[in-house]
Amino acid sequence: MVAETDGIGGTRLAVLRGQSPLLLRRTGPRRPGGVTVHVVGGAAGPLRGDELRLDIEVGPGASLELLSVAAQLALPGRPAPASRLTITATVAAGGTLRWLPEPLIAASGCDHIAITRVAVEAGGSLLWRDDLVCGRHGEGSGDFVADTLISYAGKALYRHELAVGPRASGWDGPAVLGEGRATGTVVAAGTGLAAFTAAGRDLATFATTGTTGGSGSRAGSSIGARGGRVTGAHAAIMPLAGPGWLATAVGADIRTVRAALDPLCLRPAPVPV
């Protein structure tokens, strides 16, 4: 998929090509400047053995928002090597990419790897969301590894791996997810982010307190709660060492994660002309 400027302040899709299970559909009203594309799951999976690729290119001055119509469900399938989804994205100077898909659900018995490589050139802007649910309702988590590298101006800005499931030592212990079965992250990269997300302008406050939302997230409220239950969205928003920030939330289920992260992903109100 290639988004580029149309030369009159808008964005056009020079390439939009996909095949099952990753179908791409241009959707939504025409907005000034940007286009929206939905990823539509054209088949079950990913299943073990699947090797999937998604390449995204946002050119100078172009603005692209990518959503998905439904959660992605990683399933066991036949005995085969791990399924793998590799996403590469580049955002040129003056370009904007918002990746806000529905969660990935790691069904019991799945073996899935998501590799994300995003390169934002100096002057580009990025909002990158990834939500994860560890197992469907009432079942254990499958094996899943998220391997993410987001760079800005040629330098690694955020490098992170998260492994959950039976093979990941300590993943359900109090250092990684505890009793949380859903987690989500939003990474924003670029300068001038205050105008880029609705929450951006509040980031100065977040940066001071280091916290956001957080029903029950205040330490002390649950001191001595034996059994260590996750009682609310435990979330923090963190200024990265480079130009950008990360918001992370861990919750008993995806609703608590969404409550913490959704407000950060809203489009900013249009500036009155």
Binding site: V176, G210, T211, T248, V250
Partner: peptide, 11 residues
């Protein structure tokens, strides 16, 4: 990485 370590450290 470990999300709860990051979140816990900030709190």
């Amino acid at each position: 990485g470990a999300p709860l370590l990051d979140i816990g450290a900030e709190h």
